[in-house]
Design a protein around this nucleic acid. Structure first.
Length: 273
DNA sequence: CGGTAGACCTGACCGC
DNA sequence: TGCGGTCAGGTCTACC
């Protein structure tokens, strides 16, 4: 799914579409995503418009003109499709469809239905699932001293530590592998044994990979698309992710793929210690 | 408390 | 062509 760069790309795409346009009709076409889509959303957002969209971790918060906030998460396979009404045809996994006042249609499409569309508590952008979110990796809160202190005392691997949204939010399976490559740290390393110097390398590695991915419009592996149907290009710049057996771009050693906590990790056994 | 399987879903792909 | 197994960008809950 969409990790932070894909959510951010989606958020920016939606901001070009939604504000200033009235929602004429909202249709719900599924029993539930991760949670049921509250049925009253349909009536509540009719005639409203979206005034702003912000992001916390991989969650988007849509501020509505009626004062309410909608929490939107793309799960593993969620994306928005935007098209002229005359060109729109509902497809199998279009679960939430907005008809807008400029004769366009915005559809939330999500085959695996791990996404989320729910109310956030009014005004505070609050939701029970927003309570456990760690620092924003693109903010100054993520710095070398902070990271080193927070890795100390953790017996788990670097892979698991960086995937833990309660420590740093927004990283997922792709960008953890990529960031660890740039920092020269193997995903199997125990977090507590990472040195201060390595932590200092990891901070810019994380920021660099996320910013570069946002600049490229995200990564399109299978089904990720921008709101306008555009694919992202960052997958062309993967150094290790999804490159098992291919030569390291730095030293030509074949990239290794292993399984950690049931998920694939990729690394270069020569460049990463 | 920290850490790790299991659960939730569909679709694509591979080997037989 | 069909079938079973495996894998996929997330993250909550249950259990040790």
């Amino acid at each position: 799914m969409p990790e932070l760069p894909e959510v951010e790309t989606t958020r920016r795409g939606l901001l070009k579409i939604l504000p200033g346009k009235k929602i004429l009709r909202a249709e719900i076409h599924t029993e539930k995503l991760r949670l049921p889509i509250p049925p009253e959303i349909s009536a509540a957002i009719k005639s409203a418009h979206v005034t702003d969209i912000t992001r916390r971790a991989k969650y988007m918060i849509w501020r509505l003109s009626n004062g309410r906030d909608l929490l939107v998460h793309l799960g593993m396979s969620g994306r928005f499709r935007h098209s002229a009404k005359k060109d729109f045809e509902k497809t199998k996994h279009d679960h939430f469809i907005l008809y807008l006042s400029d004769n366009t249609v915005l559809a939330y499409h999500d085959p695996r239905r791990f996404g989320l569309i729910d109310w956030a508590k009014q005004g505070t952008a609050d939701h029970s699932w927003l309570g456990n979110i760690g620092v924003d990796p693109l903010s100054r809160d993520l710095n070398a001293d902070w990271l080193y202190e927070n890795l100390r005392g953790r017996k788990t691997t670097m892979k698991a530590a960086l995937l833990d949204q309660k420590m740093i939010n927004g990283l997922g399976n792709i960008y953890v592998s990529e960031a660890l490559f740039y920092a020269g740290i193997r995903p199997t390393r125990i977090a507590a044994k990472v040195t201060k110097l390595e932590a200092a390398r990891l901070v810019p590695a994380i920021k660099k990979v996320l910013n570069a991915a946002i600049k490229s419009g995200g990564s399109s592996l299978r089904d990720y698309r921008d709101v306008d149907g555009q694919v992202g290009f960052f997958q062309e710049r993967f150094t290790v992710y999804d490159r098992a057996g291919e030569p390291c771009r730095t030293c030509a050693t074949p990239i290794r793929q292993i399984t950690q906590n049931g998920r694939s990790s990729y690394f270069c056994s020569h460049c990463q210690k």
